[in-house]
Design a protein around this nucleic acid. Structure first.
Lengths: 249, 249
DNA sequence: CTGGAAAAATAACACATGTAAATTAACTTA
DNA sequence: TAAGTTAATTTACATGTGTTATTTTTCCAG
């Protein structure tokens, strides 16, 4: 069932049958969360490593006066901090944006994998390094890019990440985010997100309809967003990764 | 010589004499960099893990049109990405802000430590997790905080990090950064950094003179910056950490 | 010391984005 | 299918921060 994770890791390195089974076994303990519920809260003691199986979640942090920053989006196949249990308490929260099913991987199992499965361990390290690179790229996004570049950049990133786990269809993918959530992620007001989305639509760079995002010309969107995919470290250029159809129509 | 790193790690866990010696040995290969030179560039193949021994450095990323975002500051005791060699190429650059001495730790030695020294490995994981938490906090900083909160927050963070490695004197520490560098780190223009610094000075929250930062009332600065130190995971409350004198005068 | 470069400070003006409030559209669910 | 709720859109206006250019100060090398 953690096939999205396995698929993602296999972008980096081929795994053996045993490796895959070890990951299957690790993800045995399932749990479901309702839309908008907190999966874990700032201050909590992190007991498990969460692996998103279905649905979207986000990491966020709330300031004392209520301002909220969304720090990352989690999609199927994403691990929430491989070694988080080393810390005494969470410094941020994780919430379900849609109904979510996840696997709670106990520390002991992860430690066993680390001791016994070099390939998997290395692939998990790769995944961790990419997550951190994504966090850095968000810092660049908030610090340097204009509103339209920022949103465009986010859409490019999400599309490529989803394609990496086989969750795109042609040039479109799900995008179950409200404008308020986009605003909290991009450090902009919801009003300005609305304006910016309209500009992106008007220029034909994206289509957004009923929680579905379509990017007619990914290269063009990457260009205006100053998007460079190198930080995703997709070493096998990603051609073969679309589940349903070839990239060009 | 990597005593700053050792001191930092011992905030998290006590190390044995052997552990410390292993770290000493790992840092045998030294290298120096001139002020403003690049230590490693985006696109390079990362061969070593760099450990800053002396001086300040920064991680940065440059957009095609020249805009630059500083992503983190490195001070003595900081490791630049413990497992970076897993990636094929760097997705960002690292530059010396002052003259820098660092140790190039080869992959093989780090792997040996990981296999033989549980304590050190765990402490390095803690350090990695804290670095990532800092990156997240920078995202919050750029996304949600106003100019004055942002700068105040940065100063609180740097002061506490330096205190953790014994590089503060009373309520002051070095701050070898130009206003342009501060601007690139905070996603603000240098003009606005100047305005904001003046406001911080006028209100008596910080004093800045000749590359030295003084924070007369850390609590007050934390308050106006909405600074919550939990993300630094200083589990031993940090009282005893000042090198020269007790925290209160 | 002194000249020259880098850094900091100042000034005037522009504009991207925020705020607040009201309206319309899109879903849910009884 | 209609009520009720949430999300999206629109409008008008305010403001924080950016831009460009100039001046002043600080810092060093010679």
């Amino acid at each position: 069932m953690p096939h999205h994770l396995i698929r993602k890791l296999e972008q980096f390195t081929k795994l053996s049958r045993d490796d895959r089974q070890a990951l299957e076994a690790a993800a045995a303990k399932r749990r479901s969360f309702a839309e908008h519920s907190d999966i874990i809260r700032e201050g909590d003691d992190p007991a498990y490593v969460n692996l998103i199986l279905e649905g979207w979640a986000c990491r966020y942090k709330q300031l004392d006066d209520g301002r909220r920053q969304i720090l990352s989006f989690f999609v199927p196949g994403d691990l929430c901090d491989t070694h988080i249990y080393i810390l005494r308490e969470m410094d941020h929260s994780i919430a379900a944006l849609t109904p979510v099913t996840l696997a709670e991987i106990p520390r002991s199992i992860l430690e066993r994998i680390t001791n016994e499965r070099t390939r998997v361990t290395k692939a998990l390290w790769w995944d961790t390094l990419v997550s951190v690179a994504i966090q850095r790229e968000w810092t660049v996004n908030l610090g340097q890019r204009t509103a339209i570049e920022r949103l465009g950049h986010l859409f490019c990133e999400l599309f490529l990440r989803l394609r990496g786990v086989g969750l795109t269809e042609g040039n479109s993918c799900m995008l179950p985010l409200t404008q308020v959530e986009l605003a909290d992620a991009m450090g902009l007001s919801n009003v300005h997100i609305n304006r910016t989305l309209q500009e992106l639509r008007r220029s034909g760079l994206v289509a957004l309809k009923g929680k579905r995002l379509t990017i007619p010309d990914l290269d063009a969107l990457q260009k205006i967003s100053l998007f460079n995919p190198n930080y995703l470290h997709l070493e096998h250029d990603g051609r073969h990764l679309d589940a349903d159809e070839p990239t060009s129509p």
